Computed example of a mutant assay.
Amino acid sequence: MKLMFLTDRIWGRSAYSKVLKSLSMRLTRDHEVSAVPMGNALKGIPFMSPLNIMGANVYGCGNDPFCEDVAYEYYDKLNADLLITIKEPWNFNTVPKLALNYVPMAIIDHTPLSPHLISRVDTAFKVIAVSRFGQRELKANKIDSTYIPHGLEPHYECLWDQKDECAKTWYLDPDAFKIGIVAMNRARKMIPRMFRAIRVFIDNNPDIKVQVMFWGSIQGTAMDYKPHGVGDTGASLIKEIVDLDLAETIQWSDEATIAEGIPERLPTMGWDMVTLYNSFDVLLHITGGEGFGLPLIEAQRCGVPVITTDYAAGPENVGIGLTVPYHDYVVVNSVGTRYALADIDATADALAKIANADKDKLARKGVRFTERYRWDNIMEKHMNPFL
């Protein structure tokens, strides 16, 4: 088949870049894969003059940040069988209306589904749900879908006897209780709420030495485009850290490194995502809602328990760790999607439980749980039958 993807750049570090890269490496064995990168990532390339990157033919983008101004022309010229988008469906305005085999990977991170999102998937040729939660929400709105989750590459692993070395690589104390946060600085991620929960945990457990590694932008930036009025703005976190008296507890990287990203795995011990996850004792991820939550399974594959909000797709991806309840929600975009506010005291209690748990036992369970998310398993059980 001829498969055309609209998503983030295949050479990038985002979750969607990772998904495209992993799919492309496997799909190109039996299919012809093309990709058009979003976010104006490859401008100036002549039309129909692709670059071959990781087995995929990557074409130049248009002026629209989601490539909707060139999507149909590429689809037609390539004689593509499917146009697969890996992005929140509400970002698209014209593609769902075109006469083509449009297949959205529906990233569903809220309930009830907003009418805006429904209108972007109810005209699709087929719909892929990346979570069981999303599949249920779509079914409730009479939209059929096929479950195909995101996955993990083999280089994600638990470095059993190198945990202390991993911590030292990231300037963390091996004897401290190390809380990791891996998230973009966006309103939906509720990072200030995570900091508040950490403050409560520290106050409740003064005998535990705590260190926090925040892997995300500390300054926060606004999106440089707001499709259909949807905004998800990040905030400067410095004042929150200072006001909560966490300046000596939380550490973060420079903005350039965060923007560029780091490799998933280096040949030797160094700054990569596998070493980062292995330096944690817990991943704190009490966001407002996850369409999948890739950091959750990446951390558990590295033997690290997780804490997430009991809302949207996050809970189904918790094999080791805890979910915390929410009692209220906020609406932070013009689409009107509801994002949960995780209970701060319950989060602090969850941190205390994990701080006193058997780390090795949790790690073994986490590795077993995430076996189902290995990309080769996902291709065999889900993607190949779908195609």
Rank of each mutant, 00 (worst) to 15 (best):
D173H: 10
E290S: 02
K365E: 15
T85I: 13
D173G: 06
P385H: 06
M105A: 14
Y72W: 10
T257S: 15
L27R: 07
V70C: 08
I307Y: 11
R199C: 05
I307D: 11
Q162K: 15
R196H: 14
F133G: 08
M54G: 14
A363E: 01
N141T: 00
W160G: 06
L351Q: 09
L51R: 12
F214H: 14
Y326K: 03
G229M: 02
L6R: 14
R132W: 01
P96V: 07
V331D: 00
S334P: 00
V95C: 08
W170N: 00
P206N: 04
P65H: 05
D203K: 13
G62D: 00
E157W: 00
A346M: 03
L237E: 04
N63A: 07
M184S: 13
I191L: 07
I320C: 01
I250H: 07
L42C: 08
I286C: 14
Q211D: 05
P227I: 10
R338D: 05
R132L: 12
C67R: 00
Q162W: 10
R301Y: 00
W160I: 15
K139H: 11
I118W: 00
E32N: 13
S131L: 03
N356W: 01
R26Q: 10
Y102Q: 11
I198D: 01
E68C: 03
V330R: 14
L82Q: 14
P37G: 02
I181F: 03
N185L: 08
N93L: 02
T249L: 09
K77A: 15
D69F: 07
G180D: 09
H116T: 08
G60L: 03
D272A: 04
A235M: 13
R265T: 04
D281N: 15
M105K: 03
I354Q: 03
K139G: 06
I45E: 09
A35N: 10
E73Y: 11
D254Q: 11
I45V: 15
E153D: 14
T85W: 13
T370E: 07
S17E: 10
F133D: 09
S119P: 02
L138Q: 06
A140Y: 06
V103D: 04
I378D: 12
D243V: 05
S114I: 04
P206C: 03
S14I: 03
F292D: 07
E88I: 05
L351R: 06
A346F: 00
G289F: 07
R186S: 02
L3H: 10
V210Q: 05
E380C: 04
S24K: 06
